[in-house]
Lab assay of single mutants.
Amino acid sequence: MKVIFLKDVKGKGKKGEIKNVADGYARNFLFKQGLAIEATPANLKELE
């Protein structure tokens, strides 16, 4: 799953980066902790 990092995550990505991560990792950790959001077309447009 592609995500947009909202904060730096050690060993995974830095704020503003778009990366592929495991679905479970994204849903169970990154999204719940507010560290990333899903890289949907709408979210990508907001990032620009």
Rank of each mutant, 00 (worst) to 15 (best):
M1G: 04
M1F: 08
M1R: 07
M1S: 05
M1E: 03
M1H: 04
M1Q: 05
M1I: 15
M1T: 12
K2M: 15
K2N: 10
K2Y: 15
K2T: 14
K2H: 09
K2A: 11
K2I: 14
K2Q: 12
K2S: 12
K2R: 13
K2E: 10
V3F: 00
V3K: 00
V3L: 04
V3I: 09
V3G: 00
V3H: 01
V3P: 00
V3Q: 00
V3M: 03
V3W: 01
I4K: 04
I4L: 11
I4Q: 03
I4E: 02
I4D: 01
I4A: 03
I4F: 08
I4N: 01
I4T: 02
F5P: 00
F5V: 01
F5D: 00
F5S: 00
F5I: 01
F5Q: 01
F5N: 00
F5M: 04
L6A: 02
L6S: 02
L6R: 03
L6M: 07
L6H: 00
L6V: 09
K7Y: 11
K7L: 10
K7R: 13
K7A: 14
K7W: 09
K7S: 10
K7H: 12
K7D: 06
K7G: 05
K7F: 12
K7Q: 13
D8W: 07
D8E: 07
D8G: 05
D8L: 04
D8R: 05
D8F: 06
D8A: 06
D8I: 03
D8Y: 07
D8T: 10
D8V: 03
V9R: 01
V9H: 02
V9A: 03
V9Q: 02
V9E: 00
V9G: 01
V9L: 06
V9F: 04
V9M: 04
V9K: 01
K10V: 12
K10N: 11
K10A: 14
K10M: 11
K10D: 12
K10L: 12
K10R: 14
G11M: 04
G11D: 08
G11P: 04
G11F: 07
G11Q: 04
G11N: 10
G11Y: 08
G11H: 08
G11V: 02
G11T: 04
G11S: 07
K12V: 15
K12Y: 15
K12N: 07
K12W: 15
K12P: 01
K12D: 06
K12M: 15
K12L: 15
K12I: 15
K12H: 15
K12R: 10
G13L: 02
G13D: 01
G13F: 14
G13M: 04
G13T: 02
G13R: 00
G13K: 01
K14E: 06
K14M: 13
K14N: 09
K14D: 05
K14L: 12
K14W: 08
K14Y: 11
K14P: 00
K15Q: 09
K15S: 06
K15E: 06
K15G: 04
K15T: 09
K15I: 09
K15D: 01
K15A: 12
K15P: 04
G16H: 08
G16T: 02
G16M: 05
G16P: 01
G16D: 05
G16F: 09
G16L: 04
G16E: 01
G16K: 02
E17L: 03
E17G: 02
E17P: 00
E17T: 06
E17M: 06
E17F: 02
E17Y: 03
E17S: 06
I18E: 03
I18S: 03
I18N: 02
I18W: 03
I18R: 03
I18A: 04
I18V: 13
I18Q: 04
I18K: 03
K19L: 08
K19N: 04
K19M: 10
K19S: 06
K19G: 07
K19E: 03
K19D: 03
K19I: 10
K19T: 08
N20A: 11
N20G: 08
N20V: 15
N20L: 15
N20E: 15
N20R: 14
N20Y: 15
N20H: 15
N20P: 07
N20W: 15
N20M: 15
V21I: 09
V21E: 03
V21W: 03
V21F: 06
V21D: 01
V21R: 00
V21S: 02
V21L: 05
A22P: 13
A22D: 15
A22T: 12
A22H: 15
A22S: 14
A22F: 10
A22G: 10
A22Y: 11
A22W: 10
A22V: 07
D23Y: 14
D23T: 15
D23I: 15
D23S: 13
D23E: 15
D23F: 14
D23M: 12
D23W: 14
G24T: 14
G24R: 12
G24M: 11
G24E: 15
G24V: 12
G24L: 12
G24I: 13
Y25N: 06
Y25G: 03
Y25M: 07
Y25R: 06
Y25L: 08
Y25D: 07
Y25E: 09
Y25H: 08
Y25K: 07
Y25I: 07
A26G: 05
A26P: 02
A26Y: 13
A26F: 14
A26L: 13
A26S: 05
A26N: 03
A26R: 02
R27A: 08
R27K: 11
R27V: 14
R27D: 04
R27H: 10
R27L: 14
R27I: 15
R27T: 10
R27P: 03
N28R: 11
N28M: 10
N28Y: 12
N28G: 09
N28E: 14
N28H: 13
N28Q: 10
N28D: 14
F29H: 11
F29E: 12
F29L: 08
F29T: 09
F29N: 06
F29A: 06
F29W: 13
F29R: 06
F29P: 02
F29K: 06
F29D: 06
L30N: 00
L30S: 00
L30G: 01
L30P: 01
L30R: 02
L30D: 01
L30E: 01
L30Y: 04
L30F: 04
L30V: 01
L30H: 00
F31H: 02
F31N: 02
F31P: 01
F31L: 13
F31K: 03
F31A: 01
F31V: 08
F31E: 03
F31G: 01
F31T: 03
F31I: 13
F31M: 07
K32L: 13
K32N: 08
K32R: 10
K32Q: 13
K32F: 07
K32M: 11
K32I: 14
Q33M: 15
Q33W: 15
Q33K: 14
Q33R: 14
Q33L: 15
Q33H: 15
Q33N: 15
Q33E: 12
Q33P: 02
G34R: 07
G34W: 05
G34H: 10
G34T: 03
G34L: 06
G34I: 03
G34A: 07
L35K: 04
L35M: 07
L35R: 02
L35D: 03
L35N: 02
L35V: 05
L35P: 00
L35Y: 08
L35Q: 04
A36S: 02
A36V: 07
A36Y: 01
A36D: 01
A36W: 01
A36N: 00
A36P: 00
A36H: 00
I37S: 04
I37H: 03
I37V: 13
I37M: 12
I37R: 06
I37N: 02
I37P: 00
I37Q: 05
E38P: 12
E38I: 07
E38S: 06
E38V: 07
E38H: 07
E38R: 09
E38T: 05
E38L: 10
E38Y: 05
E38A: 11
E38F: 04
E38K: 08
E38W: 07
E38N: 03
A39M: 07
A39W: 12
A39H: 05
A39P: 02
A39T: 03
A39G: 05
A39N: 03
T40Q: 04
T40L: 06
T40P: 05
T40V: 05
T40H: 06
T40A: 04
P41M: 10
P41I: 12
P41S: 09
P41H: 09
P41G: 09
P41E: 14
P41T: 10
P41L: 12
P41Y: 10
P41N: 09
A42H: 12
A42Q: 13
A42D: 12
A42P: 08
A42Y: 07
A42T: 11
A42N: 12
A42E: 14
A42S: 12
A42K: 12
A42M: 10
N43F: 09
N43P: 04
N43H: 12
N43A: 10
N43Y: 09
N43S: 09
N43T: 10
N43L: 11
N43E: 06
L44M: 11
L44Y: 06
L44I: 14
L44P: 04
L44N: 05
L44S: 06
L44W: 06
L44V: 11
L44D: 05
L44T: 08
K45V: 09
K45M: 12
K45A: 14
K45R: 13
K45I: 12
K45S: 11
E46W: 15
E46R: 10
E46D: 13
E46P: 07
E46Q: 12
E46G: 11
E46S: 12
E46I: 12
L47H: 11
L47M: 11
L47I: 12
L47F: 13
L47D: 07
L47V: 11
L47W: 14
L47E: 06
L47G: 08
L47A: 07
E48M: 15
E48N: 13
E48F: 14
E48H: 12
E48W: 10
E48P: 09
